[in-house]
Simulated scan of single mutants.
Amino acid sequence: MRIGIFTDTYDPDINGVVRSINSLKQALVNNDHEVFIITNHPHIYKIEFKDRVLRLPGIRLNSLYGYVASSPIQKRAYEYVRRLSLDIIHVNTDFGIGYFGRYCGRKLNIPVVFTYHTEFESYTNYINPLKIKLVDTIGKFIVSKASKKLCKTCDAVIAPSKKTRNMLKKYGVTRRIFVVPTGLEIDTFYRHSIDYARNQDLRKSLGVRNEELLILYIGRVAPEKSIEILVDGFKKINQSVLPSKLLIVGDGPSYQSLRNSIDASLLDSVLFAGKIAMSEVPRYYSASDVFVSPSVTETQGLTFIEALACGLPLFAREDSALKDVVIENETGFYFKNSDDLARKLEYYASLSDVEKSKIFSKIFEKSREYDLDHFYTSIMDVYQLVK
């Protein structure tokens, strides 16, 4: 098949949607499909087509993570897309390029599949800094109506988790929804395929001693991720019982304010790596000992799956999107608040090597459920149904 993936965010952006798209592209290419990425770049007029990536004009939004916004009306780009002779259009975002993909599908009579990646109702704080309840209610109402309309204009909808499917049904979406968790090229993340010496070099460069537990967060640094719970929980760890450091990897609107909020006593033990290249992400997982994220706004929790693939025990707050990934006392532990997080981390550290080995076995077993072969089979089932 010739498949066009339409997205408002792509390399060099680093986020969950881009990681998911790269996994989708790799799975399709591995099985001899022709894949074209239709995205944008920060040029007012220029269209660029290189290495099967078609980049359309857009404007960089420095106030919104530096993302690029594009018009859904793309007359010149339409001719490029028409000449691609696509069999499937797979839309992955909800903005200008996503609307353009739907338009191309309708005009060219090409089936359109839409993956709903983002739980937008958890982001209404960006338009409601004063936390006014009425504004929040109106924001969530608009999200539900817009989501329903976006799904209506497609032939099939993919949800990365049951949580997302249930949310879309609550919005009144009537299109058939397929639950397809994003897959990973597992061997890229597998701890034993990554150079041990490089891992040790990374720990040393960060000032982490061998006997210290390195607690990792990777993701966007933003209010909806609730990273302050993680920092507060780390502060409550008894360092004489559990010598440890916290490493925060990623960038976002709260990055500077979070750094500024760290107590002076923690400046040497709460480490910030900032934004890193995607190629370096597996190394940071593998150099760490556990993965923690307090976020309850995930549609799937791709970073949890990446951490699993690297053999890391997971620590999370209860969220229906994670219930198939984080299994208590098997692949990780749930915590309710910062006090509970500190207790759970200390409990995990106190386990015997035999008990930890059992957890590692479960983690390895679970991670195999998210390999690219499983992902590809599920995606093709959807494509074949809409063809």
Rank of each mutant, 00 (worst) to 15 (best):
I138L: 15
S320C: 04
V112M: 02
S147F: 01
E280H: 01
Y78I: 02
A159V: 07
M278V: 07
T137M: 13
K148V: 07
R76P: 00
R209C: 12
R191I: 10
P72R: 12
F375R: 06
I142K: 09
S240F: 01
D51T: 06
D268G: 07
L108Y: 02
G219S: 14
D94P: 01
A316T: 03
S361Q: 15
D87F: 01
V249L: 08
R60N: 05
T303G: 07
R52G: 05
I276Q: 05
R198Q: 15
E79F: 04
L54G: 04
I262T: 11
V112Q: 01
D32H: 10
K362N: 06
H374E: 12
P160D: 15
S63Q: 12
L61D: 14
Y196C: 08
D381S: 10
T174A: 13
S244E: 08
E185N: 11
D155F: 11
N92Y: 09
S23C: 04
S254G: 12
S257C: 06
K170R: 12
N128W: 01
L64E: 12
V386H: 04
N40R: 05
S70A: 13
I158D: 05
K235S: 14
S226Y: 15
K25H: 03
I14N: 03
D251Q: 13
P129H: 02
I38G: 03
Y370H: 04
V292M: 11
V29W: 03
Y67C: 12
R198V: 11
G172Q: 14
G233Q: 07
E121T: 04
Y285A: 06
T182A: 08
I21R: 11
N30R: 04
R175H: 09
P57N: 14
G101K: 02
P253W: 05
A156F: 03
K107R: 12
Y347C: 13
G96P: 04
S85M: 07
E328W: 07
D324R: 14
T164N: 08
D381W: 01
K362P: 00
S193E: 13
F315I: 06
Y116W: 06
F189T: 05
S261E: 10
N238F: 08
D187Y: 09
V249R: 03
I379Y: 10
P313L: 05
Y285F: 06
E48A: 10
R83N: 11
D289N: 09
A197P: 00
S71T: 02
V143L: 02
G301T: 06
S20F: 03
S279C: 08
A309C: 08
G250T: 04
Y10M: 06
G98F: 13
T9P: 09
E355I: 00
F335Y: 15
L247G: 06
Y255H: 15
K75I: 05
F36A: 10
K204L: 11
Y255L: 15
R55S: 07
N238T: 06
I97Y: 01
T174N: 15
D353V: 05
G252A: 14
I262E: 14
V325I: 15
V179E: 14
S352D: 05
I21G: 04
D371Y: 02
T188S: 12
S144Q: 13
L134V: 12
V113F: 04
D339M: 07
K162T: 07
M1R: 06
L202W: 03
Y255A: 13
